[in-house]
Write a protein that binds this DNA or RNA. Structure first.
Lengths: 253, 253
DNA sequence: CGCCTGTTTGAGAAGACTCAAAACGGGTGG
DNA sequence: CCACCCGTTTTGAGTCTTCTCAAACAGGCG
């Protein structure tokens, strides 16, 4: 089953037409190797993406070279927010590990808004979730020390993985380098290393190669003020699927 | 004229039905005094808002008291992203100065997505703009020093004010306290004060009470890597409502 | 085996913070 | 009209987190 349809179905009871519209977004398939850049900030690119397998991240770099990672994209994610507003993408999209993505032209999302407006609203709600999660990270960068920043990133990733895998424990494979973590939470790789070590020594996390375990989730939540933004998404404000009033239907067509 | 309709009309040629749908969002009117809290994070509130006059900001606070300001909301802005995803708002909405807002129930936005899907797409694109602007601030917090952070905030505010007032110079009224600035860029109020002084001494900004002037915009852009995300918004990917000259479908310059 | 990327460790420097207190300014009440 | 008050801005001194520079170590791959 399509990973995007699966995720959306968890939030909303999809009609057949809606399900079809989603599946059409995933018609194509493209493999991307670890480290490969799918789209580069500033380059012309008229595509959105659905992630089918693997992690990607979106980032931007300053002329001087420092990089900031804004978001990680997991299977079932729609990657559109960083280039819906302009002709050229604002962020660079890079594969963290080997991935499969479905690119589709932007206009197809426009058509989906017209043909399945309730899905449009759902995408809006999911954009709001991403926005608020980013605000949480901003709060971490602005007001937490290194340990808190790293801890809140681990909690966030764990929460998002849990959405896709309900039977997910407190231990997971983290394909990020310490450099990636540093570029995401605004520290240097050297300091990230010290912080991870410190968290481990305090018994808050466990590490084994690239496996990470949240040994004391309560303490991590306590030190970061973490809120899970992904567990529940409200869709009650979306209009029912019912046909539109004929008057407006005419006006639109 | 409704400030929201005016702003959207700058991005898209609105049909009569679309314009009506927007105006309906602004049916009610509520005055909010300086410092007053419109909606508190966590409280039940089933409303979105259109800003008609004045500035507001959305923020969150940690149990320990530190606050982070995520966004400023100007006349013509739709304030919905911070609570579209949940029943309860994720952020606290506070008036920076005396304001007039139009609250409307969330379900009305759902209806708008159904009845004017092209506007739904436009709201999605504008959400993307807010998202990317927030990413820019995240980059500033993660990778710039105090002076760069404050400078990029001033540039961002100036860019957004320019959208509403095309004949806007490099000098503007900034109703924020240094505490507000500090809570937005993740510094202490003491350090913001020193940074503002330093920027002034270096001839990059000018201050006179709460009037701020960007004396050397080029240097500010150079030191921050600032990109104006608000000047142009691409709406070409939205489905057409009716046949229109192709020239208008392209990104509005 | 050597190379490259990523991780770990050390020592000193720098930016930002804390604490503290003084100066300022607009609004209020006497 | 003045004195007072509170929120805000400004200034100083000392401290601490994080950065920088540097180098050693580990592991996977050709």
């Amino acid at each position: 089953m399509s990973p995007l349809a699966k995720r959306l179905a968890a939030y909303l009871d999809l009609t057949v037409a809606e399900r079809d519209a989603i599946v059409r977004l995933e018609a194509r398939e493209r493999r991307v190797g670890r480290g490969e850049v799918l789209a580069h900030a500033g380059d012309r690119a008229d595509q959105f993406y659905v992630v089918r397998a693997g992690w990607l991240h979106s980032s931007a770099a300053r002329p001087s070279g420092e990089r900031q990672i804004f978001a990680f994209h997991f299977p079932g994610d729609l990657v559109s927010l960083s280039n819906a507003g302009w002709v050229d993408p604002a962020h660079t999209l890079t594969a963290v590990e080997d991935c499969i993505v479905s690119p589709f032209p932007k206009s197809q999302l426009g058509a989906l808004f017209a043909q399945a407006p309730r899905l449009g609203g759902l995408f809006y709600a999911l954009a709001a979730v991403d926005y608020v999660a980013l605000c949480d990270r901003l709060l971490a960068l602005g007001r937490l020390d290194g340990a808190g920043r790293v801890a809140s990133l681990l909690l966030e990733i764990s929460s998002r993985l849990r959405v896709a895998q309900p039977h997910f424990g407190e231990r997971f494979h983290l394909p990020l380098t310490q450099i990636d973590i540093a570029d995401c939470v605004g520290l240097t790789k050297v300091h990230v290393n010290r912080v991870l070590r410190e968290l481990e020594e305090r018994g808050l996390i466990a590490r084994e190669g690239r496996l990470v375990g949240l040994s004391d989730r309560d303490a991590l939540v306590e030190m970061t003020g973490f809120v899970d933004r992904y567990a529940v998404v409200a869709t009650d404000w979306l209009a029912a699927t019912a046909p539109r009033p004929p008057s407006l239907q005419a006006a639109i067509q």
